[in-house]
């Protein structure tokens, strides 16, 4: 299922941007996005840092489930490889992160569960799947690393990074209207499995 040609948008996202997206839409993103994986999600939910402690704007932002290969150079940090990591591992935190920080987009792979799906609908957020394992391809679309947070404490792969992207491709697989392509494929594959056993 692909719905026409790719929709282009720039971060931060508004609720209307999000409501206009549906499962199967190809999107191209421009602007700043934030990386965050296991340790970042645990910290955001347990420590609940205040806006003044967080060096980025999260409201309307996109969190990319990604632990990049990043290298410090004379001109600052440079991303070498940056594909998505499995989103399901932060499923227990996602609803709170959306609610507490006003996140409008989650970028990852493999989809997320019912509580996240409900939070997408309640607060107006969308789940986007980036190409699995396409780390070199996606790094070419990341133009700049603006800053990192908790680098020393979490290690480079698990720190939170603000990065500027250009024409970063993804597909909407869970929308703000309660639809999930992952759930549909899981249901269909269960039916097939039951026929096979």
């Amino acid at each position: 299922m692909v719905n026409g040609s790719a929709k282009r948008f720039r971060t931060p996202l508004t609720k209307d941007d999000v409501l206009g997206l549906k499962v199967g839409d190809l999107v191209l993103m421009d602007g700043s996005i934030l990386t965050g994986r296991d340790k970042v999600h645990k910290m955001l939910c347990n420590e609940k840092p205040s806006a003044s402690e967080i060096p980025f704007r999260l409201d309307g932002g996109i969190i990319y489930h990604c632990g990049p290969i990043i290298r410090k150079t004379d001109e600052g940090y440079k991303l070498i490889a940056a594909g998505p990591t499995t989103s399901m591992r932060v499923d227990m935190y996602a609803a709170d992160v959306i609610k507490l920080y006003g996140i409008r987009g989650i970028l990852g792979k493999g989809g997320m569960g019912p509580s996240t799906s409900a939070a997408l609908k309640e607060h107006g957020c969308v789940y986007l799947q980036a190409a699995s394992g396409a780390a070199a391809y996606l790094a070419d679309r990341i133009k700049k690393v603006n800053k990192g947070w908790r680098i020393e404490e979490f290690g480079e792969p698990e720190a939170m990074w603000e990065i500027d992207v250009e024409s970063f491709p993804a597909v909407v697989t869970m929308d703000a209207h309660g639809n999930s392509l992952h759930r549909d494929i899981e249901d269909a594959s269960l039916k097939k499995l039951l026929q096979l056993v």
């Binding site: 290969i69 070498i80 490889a81 940056a82 780390a135 070199a136 790094a139």
Partner: peptide
Amino acid sequence: NISIARNSAVPICQ
């Protein structure tokens, strides 16, 4: 992605 990684000698996956 496979061909970019091979040609520029960067890891296929992060």
